[in-house]
Design a protein around this nucleic acid. Sequence first.
DNA 1: TGAAGACTTGACCAATCGGTCAAGATGAGA
DNA 2: TCTCATCTTGACCGATTGGTCAAGTCTTCA
Lengths: 221, 221
Amino acid sequence: MNKRHKSEKPVRLSRIQEMNRSRIIDAALGEFSRYGYSGATIDKISAAAGMSKSNLLYYFSSKTAVYEAVLEYILDVWLAPLRTLNPDGDPASELAAYIRQKMRMSAERPEASRLFANEVIQGAPQIGDVLEKDLKNLVTEKSKVIEQWIEAGKIRRIVPVHLIFTIWATTQHYADFDSQIRALTGTGLEDPEFFAEAENAVCSLILNGLGLEWPKQQKTS
Amino acid sequence: MNKRHKSEKPVRLSRIQEMNRSRIIDAALGEFSRYGYSGATIDKISAAAGMSKSNLLYYFSSKTAVYEAVLEYILDVWLAPLRTLNPDGDPASELAAYIRQKMRMSAERPEASRLFANEVIQGAPQIGDVLEKDLKNLVTEKSKVIEQWIEAGKIRRIVPVHLIFTIWATTQHYADFDSQIRALTGTGLEDPEFFAEAENAVCSLILNGLGLEWPKQQKTS
DNA sequence: TGAAGACTTGACCAATCGGTCAAGATGAGA
DNA sequence: TCTCATCTTGACCGATTGGTCAAGTCTTCA
């Protein structure tokens, strides 16, 4: 496990490797999310990462390898909020917490949201497998949670998967369509006032839509 | 006005021009919506339109010219549903009708939705002006309608623009994220059963969320 | 200090892209 | 049928792109 043993392969990355790989992924996330896979170039990514194109290709064998690394890097953190949905919790506060986490994600990592949107719009050529396995399992599991809440009479009847889609759609919309929102309202989620307004609207619409009283909650930042 | 007058410029397109321009726009819509602006190539567009690249460039001076033509062609039809929102109508049926129109649009013209999504995600470089003028005016106008309904106590209080965003997000999600939805559910909006299920979920969530009774309506197809 | 590796780069290459051009094919009107 | 404008195409061009390669520089450690 220790890289100092000559006999072992260096599975552990050196400081330089670790730093440069993360610099590349950061830069690549910006480029891919802004211009899509085809629109982004490894020239610009390497420039944004502060190194030569050749050096980028020393760390990643190809453009697609960078792209896949970025997707993998983002995927876990992006799906994390849904995992926290607790079947034993109160539906209103559980769903409100989930929506709030997704909204914060849209505000803090809009590039990640746009990257996924780009990927999915183009048919999810890279993450199709993940969608059909990991994500499908997760969604199936959480759908059952929602179904239980319905059966227990805690929330209005709805096909669970559509509730999940609605939450994804409304929250991610503020990241993906940021430029449109900005053109129409003059501001975006980075403005605390607008953020609260948006979160408030989404939470109240969905929770009321489920027949829940919406618990005005304490600040979560 | 008649093209037969030699002295006048042929503002009227010939049959061949009309047919070929529309074939190009159709093909371009498919390519641009699937691969984004950068990912689409005029080679593939012209091939999909059944003509040579040179011929395509005979009808449109450049790739961006094709792109702009596609956007213009789609824009009006895409924004039409919102225009129909009638301030004098019953909020429940007006909003339900609007949502249903948007859902039908997502089902019948998913490429149009994806094209806009691509464009907006990448910062709306081409339609930024339209967003800040025409669309902003339209949204401002319809926001006042919603505001009136609120003041009249007909629907629950909400910041109007967020209601509009929510409707856009939820309905367009079924077009833009079709591949994800298909990976998770095994079907999509082209399946009448799934369509009804989705429309039902979105309508009931939003209308109930506004404190409205949702009028189970007749089929609209 | 001095190799041996790890790291970095500019020069270069083949493929693809958007776009031009000249020449040929086709259509419509007299 | 003749003529001219419209339509259509293949050959070609310069720019950009993803990727290779050999040569150099910097770390690391005995």
